[in-house]
């Protein structure tokens, strides 16, 4: 297919979406965009089942929590794809956003420190989705950042997890 034909097809396709989007919509002239203005950690759950106290550092504007490292047997896949049981400690952060009617409620979670990869002391394939436990394979500190994806200057939340060995 020629370049000009491909361009015509793209123009027709995009044009058909734009024309309907501009001239064929119900008369709703303006739909307010509601941005996420606050993200907060409501609870921290651990595989040991013990309560965790979340603290806030007002001076530097971040949350932090001290958690004792109490490993349990966790099923994982090794490099060859076999299921193996390893000692690890799972921490699940329960978080929420407000207001609830935000137009785009996606929140990006990223590991700020330690720089990845590898995400030591976390497992290499650490998942950071909502409800995913953060798996520590040894005691250590992790700095996580929660940022609203609806704008570059949107709400953010920083939290330090200090996972320490019980004395």
């Amino acid at each position: 297919m020629k370049k000009s034909t491909v361009i015509v097809l793209l123009v027709v396709f995009l044009g058909s979406v734009l024309v309907v989007g501009i001239f064929g919509m119900q008369a709703v002239p303006w739909q307010e965009i509601v941005y996420v203005d606050k993200i907060e950690i409501t609870n921290i759950l651990t595989s040991s089942g013990k309560d965790v106290d979340i603290k806030y550092n007002e001076k530097h504007n971040y949350y932090y929590a001290f958690i004792y490292y109490e490993p349990v047997k966790v099923t994982q896949l090794d490099e060859e794809g076999n299921t193996v049981e390893v000692d690890a400690f799972e921490v699940t952060l329960v978080w929420d956003y407000s207001p609830k009617n935000a137009t785009n409620n996606k929140v990006k979670v990223s590991i700020v420190e330690p720089a990845s990869p590898p995400c030591d002391p976390l497992t290499d394939n650490a998942k950071l989705g909502r409800g995913d436990p953060i798996v520590f394979r040894r005691a250590g500190n992790v700095h996580l950042r929660y940022a609203a994806a609806d704008s570059a200057t949107g709400a953010t939340l920083d939290i330090w997890l200090y996972v320490v060995v019980q004395p």
Binding site: V12, F13, S16, V19, V20, F23, G24, M25, Q26, V28
Partner: peptide
């Protein structure tokens, strides 16, 4: 995903035929 009016519905059919 678009909340179209009557004219918009005719347009969507027309553009379907065109595409």
């Amino acid at each position: 995903a678009m909340n179209t009016n009557y004219s918009g519905q005719v347009m969507t059919k027309t553009f379907n035929l065109l595409v």
